[in-house]
C-alpha cells in the first residue's frame, strides 16, 4: 500500500509541482548548474568559444600575475572594508538619531532613503559632476577665497576610491538606516522601561544592551552590504570608468572585459570564479552562524 500511495501523491500535488518548474529550473540549472559550468571552464584555455581543453591552473596563474587584476582586488578590499564599516556605523547612528521620537521623522527618512531608489549610473554621474575639478565643489570653495583648496579625488589615483566611497555611501546608507531602524523598533519596549528604572543612561543602553540584542540585524546587514560590494560595477563604470588609468578597476569590470571584449573567456571565468570564492568566504561563516547554530540550540 505504501508504494501505491506514493504513486498517487506524485499526481496529487501535480499542479504545485508544475507551477514550481521555473523555480526548480532557476535553482538547479541557473544558480547551481551555471556556476559549476563556469568554474569547470575556468580550468580550460577557452578563447573565443568555450572549449573543454583543460590546462589546469594556467588561467589562475595568469590572473594573479596580471597587474590589473591585482589592482582590482586591492581596490575591492580597500573600498569594501571602508564601505562596510562606514555604511554600518553611519546607518546605525542615523537610525539611533531617528529613533529619538523626533518630529518630521517621515521627512528625514524620505530624504535619506531617496538615493537608494536611484541607479548606480545616476549616482555615479551626479557625483562625477559634483566632484568635477573645474566647475564642482573644488571650484566653489576656491572662489570663496581658499584658492589653494584641492579636492579632486576622481583624477587622483590615490584618492579615487574615496571619491567612489562618497557616492556609494550617499546611495546606500539610507537603506541600512532603514533596516537598523526597523531592528531598533523591533526591540521590546519593556527593555527601555527596565533600563530607565535601573537608571542606565540612553547612550550606555544602546552600547551595552541594544547593540548586542541587534546582533542578527547587524549580521544580516553585513552580509547584504558585503554581497553588494562584491558586485560593485555600475557605479565605477559611471563615475570613473575605472580610471584614472587603472586606479579604480574592480573585479567585475575585469570579468566583463575579458569575457565580452577581449574574447579571452577562460580568463574571465577564472576571475569570476575568484569572485565566487570571495562571496563564499563571506557567506559560509554567516550560514554557519545562522543555520548551523539553530540545530544545536
Amino acid at each position: 500500500m505504501a508504494t501505491s500511495s506514493r504513486g498517487a501523491r506524485v499526481f496529487r500535488n501535480l499542479n504545485a509541482k508544475i507551477a514550481a518548474i521555473p523555480m526548480i529550473f532557476t535553482a538547479v540549472v541557473v544558480f547551481a548548474g551555471f556556476s559549476v559550468w563556469t568554474v569547470v571552464y575556468s580550468f580550460t584555455n577557452s578563447k573565443l568559444l568555450p572549449k573543454a581543453n583543460f590546462v589546469g591552473l594556467d588561467q589562475y596563474e595568469r590572473l594573479w600575475s596580471n597587474s590589473r587584476w591585482l589592482i582590482s582586488i586591492q581596490n575591492l578590499m580597500i573600498y569594501g572594508a571602508l564601505a562596510l564599516v562606514f555604511t554600518i556605523v553611519i546607518g546605525f547612528v542615523l537610525a539611533v538619531l531617528m529613533d529619538q521620537k523626533i518630529r518630521f521623522e517621515d521627512t528625514f527618512r524620505t530624504i535619506m532613503l531617496y538615493p537608494f531608489a536611484l541607479s548606480f549610473i545616476v549616482t555615479g554621474l551626479a557625483w562625477q559632476w559634483i566632484l568635477n575639478p573645474q566647475l564642482g565643489i573644488q571650484n566653489v570653495i576656491r572662489e570663496m577665497g581658499w584658492t589653494s583648496f584641492t579636492f579632486d579625488p576622481l583624477n587622483n589615483p590615490d584618492l579615487v576610491l574615496y571619491g567612489l566611497l562618497i557616492a556609494g555611501l550617499w546611495q546606500g546608507t539610507g537603506f541600512v538606516m532603514c533596516i537598523m531602524l526597523a531592528g531598533l523598533r523591533g526591540i521590546d519596549e519593556d527593555i527601555w522601561k527596565a533600563t530607565r528604572v535601573d537608571g542606565i543612561g540612553t547612550w550606555k543602553t544602546y552600547i551595552v544592551v541594544i547593540i548586542p540584542m541587534m546582533r542578527p540585524v547587524f549580521i544580516t546587514t553585513l552580509v547584504l552590504v558585503a554581497a553588494g560590494i562584491i558586485k560593485l560595477y555600475d557605479l565605477v563604470i559611471a563615475q570613473t570608468s575605472g580610471g584614472p588609468g587603472n586606479a579604480s578597476q574592480v573585479p567585475a569590470m575585469y570579468v566583463y572585459s575579458y569575457m565580452f571584449q577581449a574574447q579571452n573567456l577562460a580568463q574571465g571565468f577564472a576571475a569570476s570564479t575568484m569572485m565566487l570564492l570571495t562571496v563564499l568566504i563571506v557567506l559560509i561563516p554567516w550560514a554557519y552562524l545562522e543555520f548551523g547554530g539553530k540545530k544545536n540550540g
Binding site: 504545485a16 535553482a27 544558480f31 563556469t38 567585475a252 566583463y256 573567456l265 562571496v279 550560514a287
Partner: peptide, 25 residues
Amino acid sequence: FKGSEVFFTILIFGSFIPYQVMLYP
C-alpha cells in the same frame, strides 16, 4: 512537496552568487 525547501534554499543562496559567474552560460 518533497524537495521544495531544498530548491528554495538553493534559490536564496544563489542570490548571493555574483552575476558574473552565471553571465556567460
